[in-house]
Every structure is written in structure tokens, then in C-alpha cells.
């Protein structure tokens, strides 16, 4: 992989931070999402800003600053398309499991 070979550490760390960003974004959005009771709105928003910024900073040396922005956007689009489906499957499975 063009960028990953040169900076694998930054790439994987950025991927982790980017995933955290998408997860935080997902749980802030309306609909059937997991809403941790202990996570306040302001803490969630702060985490969102921090993880997003961190992901962009980590990916900038790998892809370049503008490419890092679009990579983060693409990654969030891809995850947001799938996470609600997996969550719905998980909820259905849990509701059908006795006990």
C-alpha cells in the first residue's frame, strides 16, 4: 500500500482514532444507537473533536493533509453504512436469546 508501507504506525494509529471518531459520531446521532448513560453530551462532543483531530493529524503524514480529510470522510461513510445494520442484527439476536 502506497502510504501504509512508508508509515504503518501512523496509518494504523490513525485508523484506530478514525474508528473511535466514527463510533462517537454514531452514538451521538438519533435513531436506534447504543447510548452509554455515563457519556454526557458535552463529553461526547469533546471526544468527537479530539478523536477526529487526532485521526487527521496521524493520517496527514501518510496521505497528505487534504487526502487525510477525504480518507477520514470515506472511512466514516463506510462505517456508518454498516454499523447500524450490525447493531440491529445484534439487538435482534439479543432479544431472541432467552435470559
Amino acid at each position: 500500500m502506497t502510504g501504509m508501507v512508508t508509515d504503518p504506525l501512523f496509518f494504523w494509529a490513525g485508523l484506530l482514532a478514525g474508528t473511535a471518531w466514527v463510533m462517537l459520531l454514531w452514538i451521538q446521532l438519533p435513531g436506534h444507537t447504543p447510548r452509554p448513560a455515563r457519556l454526557s453530551r458535552s463529553a461526547g462532543l469533546a471526544g468527537l473533536a479530539l478523536s477526529g483531530g487526532l485521526a487527521w493529524v496521524l493520517w496527514s503524514p501518510v496521505f497528505g493533509p487534504v487526502s487525510a480529510f477525504f480518507c477520514l470522510g470515506g472511512w466514516s461513510m463506510a462505517l456508518l453504512c454498516f454499523m447500524p445494520v450490525f447493531w440491529a442484527l445484534f439487538r435482534t439476536y439479543r432479544s431472541h436469546t432467552p435470559g
Binding site: M1, T2, M4, F11, F70, G74, A78
Partner: peptide, 13 residues
């Protein structure tokens, strides 16, 4: 842009 990572991302999208 973004090499192989974006290529696989585009497969998903």
C-alpha cells in the same frame, strides 16, 4: 488518492 486503503474503501462504498 490515499493508495490501496482508499481503493478498498471505494470497494465498500
Amino acid at each position: 488518492f490515499g493508495g490501496e486503503f482508499v481503493r478498498w474503501l471505494y470497494v465498500i462504498l
